[in-house]
Structures are given as structure tokens and as C-alpha cells.
């Protein structure tokens, strides 16, 4: 992946972000910036605090303390403005199983205020991109998981958000489907969208411009994959991860 040498303006700024659930500290003083047009990865084991962080950034959860801005808006007071400017796809599957592909597109596009006339033509374009046009009247429940994930991503980015948050989008699918999914992500980034993705697959970390590695609620490393590998003298992300987290 090409590394971002010339930094554009930050679209997410996080300063001293803390989130506590009772006595448990899920996010312990996180600091980072995400720049426009990059793929920013959050890497960590289950329970490291990735989902907590992504929920705060997408306006689903209010942090305990810290200064956080997403797309220029404050996460305490402007969550609804954030929501208009982002896309979100979670590990828990979010399309309506009892609706068809077309009905899901129409509903979510309507909710995001895509003009009515544009919905159907743009849906056909999006379906053409993932090669599913002829299945547009199939129920989601009848589709394989890999297709559902592609569709969920298409829908999450249908209203052309500036930032899209992906929370472990590829968990549970085979390597080929995962690779296809990432092709879809690259196309979206080329249009200027910023992608914030959490994963626990090390090969996916290689696809990111920059990754931050989380462990027990803290960010323990943050840089481009190549810089990290060089700094820790390892030749792949898997070894890197083991070295850092242990």
C-alpha cells in the first residue's frame, strides 16, 4: 500500500479518550488522528476495546472523558450531525433478513435522505459493482454470508459518507470473500472516503495505510505497517502483533 507521506487534514481527532463501564476501563486514554482518504486500522484481540472506540466515534456511545471530534463535530453534543456524515457497518449483521436486497437499499437510502429519484439508478450501479443485479429481489435471508457483507458495505456507503466505520466487517467469511471485500473498500477509498476499520485478522492489517495496535484498552503502537515491521524487526504483521502484545 502507498503510504501517506503528505498528510491531509484530520477528519477524526481523539485526545485523551477514556471510556469506563463501572470499574472497567475499556478505553484507557487513547490519542490519535485519522486523515482524510486513508484506511485506518484498529488491530487487537477480542476485548481489547476496539468496538468500544468505534461506537464512540460513530455516535452510538458517549465517552467518559476526552476531547473527540469526528468530521468536525463533537461526540458529546453533536452526535446527530456526526451520524449524517458517516457510514457504519457492524460485526452484528444489520440488513433486514426478511426484506429483499432492493427493499433494504430503498429503506436505508430513504433514511439517509438520498433523493427518491436517485435511489434506484444508484442501487443498480452499486449492485453492478458487486455483481448482484440479478438477485435484487431475493430475500437477504437466502443469501450467503459473503454476499451479505458486500451488500451491507454497499448500503453503509450508499449515501457517500465522508467517513465509514467498519467494525470487524469480515469476521466469519472465507479468505476469498475477504479479499473481494477489501477490493470493495479500496474502490471506496479512491472516491475520497476515509475508512476506519477494526479487525483481528493480521493479513488485513497489511491493507491499511496506518494501524494502531490495541491491548487491554490502550494503544500500544501506531504507524504504517511497514514502519512498524521495521521498528520491531519482524517481517509480517502476525509476528509483530505477538511481539507487541506479549
Amino acid at each position: 500500500m502507498a503510504e501517506l507521506q503528505t498528510r491531509t487534514e484530520p477528519v477524526i481527532t481523539v485526545k485523551n479518550m477514556v471510556k469506563k463501564f463501572g470499574g472497567f476501563v475499556a478505553n484507557d486514554n487513547l490519542n490519535f488522528e485519522v486523515f482524510k482518504g486513508e484506511i485506518f486500522g484498529f488491530l487487537g484481540a477480542n476485548g481489547a476495546g476496539k468496538t468500544t472506540a468505534i461506537k464512540i466515534l460513530s455516535g452510538l456511545s458517549i465517552p467518559t472523558s476526552g476531547e473527540i471530534k469526528v468530521a468536525g463535530f463533537d461526540v458529546y453534543t453533536q452526535t446527530e450531525l456526526i451520524k449524517r456524515n458517516i457510514g457504519y457497518m457492524s460485526q452484528k449483521f444489520s440488513l433486514y433478513e426478511d426484506l429483499t436486497i432492493k427493499e433494504n437499499f430503498r429503506f436505508y437510502a430513504g433514511v439517509y435522505r438520498v433523493p427518491q429519484k436517485e435511489i434506484m439508478p444508484r442501487m443498480m450501479d452499486a449492485l453492478a459493482e458487486v455483481g448482484l443485479i440479478k438477485y435484487k429481489d431475493r430475500l437477504i435471508s437466502d443469501l450467503p454470508l459473503g454476499w451479505k457483507q458486500k451488500l451491507a458495505f454497499s448500503i453503509a456507503t450508499f449515501h457517500n459518507p465522508g467517513i465509514v466505520f467498519l467494525d470487524e466487517p469480515t469476521s466469519g467469511v472465507d479468505p476469498v470473500a475477504r479479499r473481494n471485500f477489501w477490493e470493495q473498500i479500496f474502490k471506496t477509498v479512491q472516491k475520497g472516503t476515509t475508512v476506519f476499520v477494526t479487525t483481528h485478522y493480521m493479513d488485513e492489517a497489511e491493507y491499511c495505510n496506518r494501524v494502531s495496535i490495541m491491548d487491554k484498552g490502550k494503544i500500544v503502537a501506531l504507524n504504517s505497517p511497514n514502519m512498524l515491521k521495521a521498528a520491531y524487526k519482524v517481517d509480517n504483521m502476525f509476528d509483530l502483533f505477538l511481539k507487541i502484545v506479549r
Partner: peptide, 14 residues
């Protein structure tokens, strides 16, 4: 239960 509420909560629906 199905988790779709989260997708709605992250949308601009008031």
C-alpha cells in the same frame, strides 16, 4: 434482538 436497531441508531433518523 436482530441488531438492526444499531444500524438505525447510527443513522440520521430522529
Amino acid at each position: 434482538e436482530s441488531g438492526t436497531i444499531e444500524q438505525l441508531n447510527v443513522s440520521p433518523i430522529q
